[in-house]
Design a protein around this nucleic acid. Sequence first.
DNA 1: CAGGCTTCTCAGCCGCCTCTCAGGCAGGGT
DNA 2: ACCCTGCCTGAGAGGCGGCTGAGAAGCCTG
Lengths: 224, 224
Amino acid sequence: MRVLVVEDERRMAAALQRGLQAEGFAVDLAHDGEDGLHQARHGEYDVVVLDIMLPRISGYNVCKQLRAEENWVPILMLSAKDGEYDMADGLDLGADDYLTKPFSYVVLVARLRALLRRGANRRPSVLRAGDLALDPARRRVTRGETPIELTPREFALLEFLIRHHDEVVSKTEILEHVWDTFDTDPNVVEVYVGYLRRKIDVPFSRNALQTVRGAGYRLAGDGG
Amino acid sequence: MRVLVVEDERRMAAALQRGLQAEGFAVDLAHDGEDGLHQARHGEYDVVVLDIMLPRISGYNVCKQLRAEENWVPILMLSAKDGEYDMADGLDLGADDYLTKPFSYVVLVARLRALLRRGANRRPSVLRAGDLALDPARRRVTRGETPIELTPREFALLEFLIRHHDEVVSKTEILEHVWDTFDTDPNVVEVYVGYLRRKIDVPFSRNALQTVRGAGYRLAGDGG
DNA sequence: CAGGCTTCTCAGCCGCCTCTCAGGCAGGGT
DNA sequence: ACCCTGCCTGAGAGGCGGCTGAGAAGCCTG
């Protein structure tokens, strides 16, 4: 598995390289945005770890550029907590996952593996589960032919659920990936699951968004 | 889940112990590096929380020593912000994760769980015994093709039994691993074994979950 | 600045899950 | 055959997880 790490802080980059190599990845480094963009274009990587604060071209623009060129290599974005961009921006750009510095090394590796497992490469432009369809680029959701209006938070939640459809995802995982926090009251997830249900569930039909008591939620669906 | 906390500041150590116990971990303490090294060698822990600044042997050297002995227990390092070592050093040593003091308690727990989860990921994704299949990630159990609904406690019990299928496991072992206590009335195990039997046993067939009088229970099955 | 939308908190309710208890049953030893 | 001990199980209490309506705070828009 080939990983490109685009990170300007030399010590951090080197530590990541050693760590990921120990995990069995083949790791290339780029130390600024221009270099990173160049390598990502020509390197055939399975995944790219992309810092946002970079010399020459920001990670933000590297990601935007790659996606504009229809390059769908999975991208995991890194950003400072107090930075100019936040998670919503990152995902808007077409990043596949997002971590806030200071991040946990284990979490980084876990999410890299998750990205690889998901085979996000050659990602279909529309995500499906059952008769639900979600288009990340156009921010549009439909059930069958009928469009569904969602708020940004609802959209992010549904996107996460649909990417993991048929799996049980815990409220903690949801908080980490959709809210980017650990220590928020999980009740907010319950509330938003409630909102989603009212919008996506068809009356008199089996619920698409199931509760798995004591474990989390599962979005049923055979789509891909 | 057994945790070893190696931390010389008594107040901090005690606070961690109480907090982690409340989260359902079994917690042992060591107050200096020598003691910590000794316990880590012989204690069969699922994860070790290791302060860097320790009397007698530094956490740095405890970690180095353990890895030199090919002991790959997951290690989460703690260090002071202004300390001599930083994240890069920690990862170089073979630590699996790294936290800077003062850290958030919630973050610590989240990262511990991430470490444990990662360990779990290395195991086979679907556990089998006979025609029973249990998928920990999806929280799904099937007998042949038919899905079986289990409550969290039933699920945890079956997971433990299936991991030890064809072995006799005592009620005490079950209590330790599934209930995480010693001093509970073993009757609760009998009750839950009963619940499980009603859900997983096929009528008119040999019982999969056998009682071994005076010793415990055994889940029959040739699967792996 | 007003109005609407979104996000999030809070408290109350409901139902499932968990666990206890007591009585009955079965195995094994004498 | 009898008893003792270990195991099983039905009934039920209590707690906790999850759901939801109400409403406050924040944010954007006109």
